[in-house]
Amino acid sequence: MALDRSLLAAVTELGSALRELVDASVRTTVGADELAVAAAEARRITGRLAAAQRPPTQLPALDDPIAFRRVFSPVTGVGSAIAPPLHIRQEEGGVVALTTLGLAYEGPPGFLHGGMSGLLMDQLLGSAAIAAGLWGMTARLELDYRGPVPLETPLVLRARVEEEAGRKTVVSGSIALAADPDSALVEARGVFVTPRPDKVESYFSAITDAAGRHSPPGRPTDATALDPERNGS
């Protein structure tokens, strides 16, 4: 099915607007009356978008798991209101991503929430496996926190495959300041396992495409994009 460029552009624009709204909502210092007006307006827009919805088992019309395009991924999706600005690309030996994270992802004051580090690393490690021609689902994810990750500061994230053994792939990665890329603030190690065919069928037997046709992913990953524009096109 051909990619609907106009729909992609609209989804991208809405996702961008929603991320701006989320950022503004955690920064604002306006008074209670203005917040109440904003909440009513947000619910009005929610009603418009809820007029037509898909069930959890139906892929969005723009998604293509084989092409690794997931427009509503909570990490790389152009249409997601919660996805950080994470752009993943291949480099020699693995993958790399540059990003700057705002207050929406705050844990300790001024620093990234530790759970967000896990989310980002899981995505990067999976991307490294895909870049190496491998795939699997996360079986284990271990993180060592060497230091707090500051917000509103350029960061560099890296990952590479360390070991391949049958259905198991071991991947390592890190988060560091872009200004000091060799000093990891977070180190990660993940084990990804390719499910057996019977498990694939069990996990994805109910998945359909936007037209309602049975459409389980051929490779049961979260379809991590390796596209600098995050649209996987």
Rank of each mutant, 00 (worst) to 15 (best):
L119H: 13
G147K: 10
D182N: 11
S174G: 02
Y145C: 08
I130Y: 12
A165Y: 02
A184R: 04
D144E: 11
V156A: 13
D182R: 14
A179V: 04
L112P: 05
A139H: 10
E152W: 06
L141I: 05
S174H: 04
M137L: 14
A179S: 13
P148W: 03
L125D: 00
P150M: 08
D144A: 10
D180L: 03
L185W: 06
R140V: 09
V156R: 15
Q123G: 14
K168V: 05
A139F: 06
K168P: 07
L157V: 10
A176D: 06
R167T: 11
T138V: 12
E164Q: 10
L151V: 07
R167D: 12
G166N: 11
V186S: 01
L124K: 15
S183P: 00
K168R: 12
R140W: 03
I130C: 11
G136M: 04
L141E: 03
G118E: 00
E164Y: 03
L134V: 02
V149D: 02
P181S: 07
P154I: 13
I175T: 07
R146Y: 04
L155K: 13
A128Q: 04
G115R: 11
V156M: 12
M137W: 09
I175V: 14
G118C: 05
A132W: 05
R167L: 07
D182M: 11
I130A: 14
L134F: 08
E142N: 05
A165G: 02
L141C: 07
R140C: 04
A159Q: 02
G126P: 13
R167G: 08
R167K: 13
Y145I: 08
G166L: 10
L143N: 02
S172A: 06
Q123R: 15
A179M: 03
V170Y: 00
D122M: 14
V149L: 05
P154H: 13
L185T: 03
L151M: 08
A165L: 06
E162S: 03
P154T: 13
P181L: 09
G115K: 12
V161H: 01
D180A: 04
S183V: 10
L151F: 07
V156S: 14
A184S: 09
D122E: 15
G133M: 09
A159V: 03
T138S: 15
G147A: 15
V156F: 11
L185N: 05
A131V: 12
G115Y: 10
A165H: 10
T169V: 12
S127W: 12
L185E: 04
G126E: 08
A184E: 05
L157G: 09
S172V: 02
A139I: 07
K168Q: 07
S174W: 00
V186D: 00
D144C: 02
V149Q: 04
